[in-house]
């Protein structure tokens, strides 16, 4: 199995936006949306997230796996924690409320299941759906539309010190190499008779069975890292401010997005400070 980044040039509108401005918008969106539980605000944020996602021009067949994972997460969070057990809503939804089945649910084999689901919890589940889907739409699109070679210079441009920005750059470069090493080690161990499935059902033994894969890959990476560090030292890494191969320049539209992001955050903070945006239940539920 090969692991590679999902980016490919798509000539999409999103790729024309400076990556720094895109990260600023994404963080502003994240912190703003988490201030609200009011479905009316969340619906507006959700729409904004969908528009932002659409700018990326990512076809469904490419993003399907990511959305499947998010759907599983939402299923657990909403169906199990909020609708079935009710605990996932306990922090926001007031106690009591209007039951969906006030008389309980009649069971086919007799008796009644006194299921305590309320319309308030159903409404809160909708709010969770809007919030988590909105956040996912804004962040899922990043790996599909951002060139991996730009992450280092982007975070440098956002104010991260050179050394830390270079860590980001290096980590992105190491991922495909280490993934390849991992698969080579897996094949080599299997050729020696290693079978991860042989550990049986004992979870502790299953974890220990991962060691023959994890140890050689980690130790080999550390030894390689020593050589990389020596090579970087020989080239006087870190002695002067670093120059980057790619240069980013803000354009007029990028400044517009930065201003919009700042306003989004400030207005959201102001609205919360004035008491707007708390969990709201439509009158027809009551």
């Amino acid at each position: 199995m090969l692991i590679s980044w999902s980016y490919r040039p798509r000539q999409s509108l999103m790729e024309r936006i400076d990556p720094r401005a895109r990260w600023v918008f994404s963080f502003s969106y994240l912190f703003s949306i988490t201030l609200f539980w009011d479905a009316r605000f969340l619906a507006a944020f959700f729409l904004l997230g969908i528009v932002w996602y659409a700018l990326g021009g990512v076809p469904w067949r490419e993003a399907r796996r990511a959305w499947m994972l998010v759907s599983f997460l939402l299923f657990t969070m909403i169906l199990v924690n909020t609708l079935l057990t009710g605990g996932g809503a306990g922090g926001v939804v007031p106690a009591g409320g209007h039951r969906v089945w006030p008389e309980g649910i009649s069971l086919p084999w007799g008796g009644v299941w006194n299921f305590g689901l309320t319309w308030e919890r159903v409404w809160f589940a909708l709010c969770q759906l809007l919030r988590i889907s909105g956040i996912s739409a804004v962040f899922i699109v990043i790996p599909f539309t951002m060139d991996p070679k730009l992450y280092g210079v982007t975070f440098r441009g956002l104010g991260l010190p050179d050394r830390f920005a270079y860590v980001v750059e290096l980590a992105f470069r190491f991922v495909p190499t280490l993934a390849r090493d991992f698969m080579i080690t897996f094949d080599a161990q299997r050729a020696r008779g290693y079978e991860i499935e042989r550990a049986g059902r004992n979870p502790l033994r299953q974890i220990a069975r991962i060691a023959p894969l994890l140890v050689p890959v980690t130790m080999n990476a550390i030894l390689t890292g020593e050589d990389v560090a020596n090579a970087m030292d020989l080239r006087a890494f870190g002695q002067r401010p670093r120059t980057w191969l790619y240069e980013l320049r803000y354009r007029r539209g990028d400044y517009g997005l930065l201003v919009f992001s700042l306003l989004l955050l400030l207005i959201s903070l102001f609205l919360r400070w004035r008491g707007y945006g708390q969990f709201w239940i439509p009158p027809w539920i009551g």
Binding site: L73, G88, V167, L170, F174, L178, I222, T224, M232
Partner: peptide, 27 residues
């Protein structure tokens, strides 16, 4: 710098290979 990058990349790869192992009913 190098070991932080290697640690992050290695953690990402192993997480990627095991992220599908979601714990049932745990959010």
């Amino acid at each position: 710098v190098v070991y932080a990058a290697i640690g992050a990349a290695l953690y990402a790869v192993v997480s990627y290979l095991t992220n599908f192992l979601q714990i049932p009913s745990a959010g």
